[in-house]
């Protein structure tokens, strides 16, 4: 997936420049709440259950201060990504045991045209191999600025 295409899946309504949450459970809920507010999801409890199960499978805290909670659910009709940042950092059980600052929540329906969901997960991962990107994302304040980094500008 091209960076510009990845960028097109983000939405300014699903963007939190500074999280209120201070623990793992609260982060998942705060992010999910965005999807509810924007009417993408009606039943957050079902989606939260799925995200808990996903963490059972393995932490989505991939290290370097990044977590990508994700999954497919019957309770969603479109592939959606939310972004949130915590300057203080949150204990998320990440694979490197370090606190997480950058959160990307990817929710997808049971099936999607062209398997966009896996392509999105695949194209997010390499972004964090570049420490410069992580540093810039940590300082991000506006959605426009954020999209610039994701697009590789």
């Amino acid at each position: 997936m091209l960076k510009s295409e990845l960028a097109s899946h983000f939405n300014h309504a699903l963007f939190i420049p500074e999280l209120k949450a201070t623990n793992k459970e609260a982060v998942l809920k705060e992010l999910l709440n965005l999807f509810v507010q924007e009417k993408y999801i009606r039943n957050p409890a079902i989606v939260l259950e799925m995200l808990h199960q996903r963490e059972t499978l393995g932490s989505t805290g991939i290290g370097k201060g990044v977590a990508i909670p994700h999954g497919r659910t019957v309770a969603a009709s479109d592939v959606l990504i939310a972004f949130a940042k915590s300057s203080a950092g949150i204990e998320f059980g990440a694979i490197d045991n370090k606190p997480v600052h950058l959160f990307f929540m990817v929710i997808a329906p049971p099936n999607d045209e062209g398997n966009v969901y896996l392509q999105i997960l695949g194209s997010l991962m390499p972004i964090f191999n570049n420490p410069e990107n992580c540093k810039r994302l940590m300082a991000v304040e506006s959605f426009e600025e954020f999209i610039g980094i994701i697009s590789g500008e």
Partner: peptide, 13 residues
């Protein structure tokens, strides 16, 4: 719904 969410997760793991 939860069962299928789990099954898809296992299938795509």
């Amino acid at each position: 719904v939860s069962l299928q969410d789990l099954d898809l997760m296992i299938q795509e793991a």
